[in-house]
């Protein structure tokens, strides 16, 4: 087993009191917390100070740690023979046990009272984010996750069920690290995010997209082919459709995983040709002369009152 200098990790003297240790730890935790800093070495540093503090904050663990004496960082050593009994596994080898695991187990034994035999330990849980396309969210998908665990790099294929949405959390039971001494295997926690789609914007299981209409399509109504995740369908645009109106295609959104689907919304905006042909200009002029429609009439009335 390799010795780790927990006092040096926290930058405190070996006779520091509990309050000084806590203060030093919190200061470093703020500096190296993964929510604050994302670089690889800060993650390792955060783990190191966390491990040091977990032992030094607990008077019993700290006393046991102090029993090991002062050694150079990383030096190989054997824990005192009576620790095997304390650890609960008479004659059990410490070879594949990390110093932090050892103190963790000692702590558990003390909390759990006078048990005999090895202490059951749950396998490690893993948390990871997975980005999937809308199409995969709709149909479900298999993704490969890479983990760094005790045994090194591990790739695990997991199945994302159909019906996930942005921000969905899933728990994959028993897919995490192996439990020890009869403890249950750990879990994997997945945080799903959806990759941006060139057309659709998801809102839970509903989908939104922008539908550009020519002025005459908006005025007269039209049957327009629009995209859905399952292929194009015909949408009836009613006459006198205003810009900003939402046209709903019921059940054409994302699958919700329970047999149903969200809705698909076409958000209308009325587009104009960049330049008008002479004929188009004439027709618009004719329309302007013939129509009594004033889109600002309501606003004008409100202003007057």
């Amino acid at each position: 087993m390799k010795y780790k200098d927990y006092y040096a990790a926290l930058g405190v003297p070996r006779d520091a009191d509990a309050e000084a240790i806590k203060k030093a730890y919190r200061k470093l935790a703020r500096q190296y917390h993964p929510d604050v800093s994302k670089t690889a070495d800060t993650e390792a540093k955060f783990k190191e100070i966390g491990e040091a503090y977990a032992t030094l904050k607990d008077p019993e663990k700290r006393a046991a740690y102090d029993e090991l004496g002062r050694r150079p960082q990383g030096q190989e050593f054997r824990p005192p023979p009576d620790w095997a009994h304390e650890f609960g596994a008479d004659g059990q080898s410490f070879e594949n046990v990390d110093l932090s695991d050892l103190f963790d187990m000692l702590g558990r034994r003390h909390r759990g009272g006078a048990q005999h035999g090895p202490v059951p330990m749950h396998g490690r849980d893993y948390e990871t984010a997975v980005r999937v396309s809308l199409e995969d969210a709709q149909r479900g998908a298999k993704v490969n996750l890479n983990f760094q665990d005790e045994g090194g790099e591990r790739t695990l294929e997991v199945t994302i069920p159909p019906g996930v949405t942005e921000g969905q959390r899933l728990r994959l039971r028993g897919k995490g690290g192996k439990g020890r001494n009869g403890g249950a295997d750990g879990d994997i926690y997945l945080h799903i995010t959806l990759a941006p789609h060139p057309v659709f914007r998801p809102d839970n299981h509903d989908l939104h997209f922008d539908l550009a209409l020519a002025p005459w399509e908006a005025a007269l109504g039209a049957e327009i082919e629009v995209p859905t995740l399952d292929g194009p369908v015909l949408l009836t645009v009613p006459p006198s459709t205003r810009s900003g109106r939402k046209l709903r295609l019921r059940g054409r959104g994302l699958a919700n995983g329970k047999g149903g689907h969200g809705d698909l919304y076409a958000i209308v905006h009325i587009d104009m040709p960049a330049t008008l042909t002479e004929r188009e200009r004439e027709l618009f002029k004719e329309l302007a002369a013939a129509s009594h429609f004033n889109p600002r009439a309501v606003a004008a009335k409100e202003k007057a009152s």
Partner: peptide, 12 residues
């Protein structure tokens, strides 16, 4: 903004 492009029908 990293986001979707609008759906455009060809004019007229």
């Amino acid at each position: 903004h990293e986001g979707p492009e609008p759906w455009h029908e060809p004019h007229g």
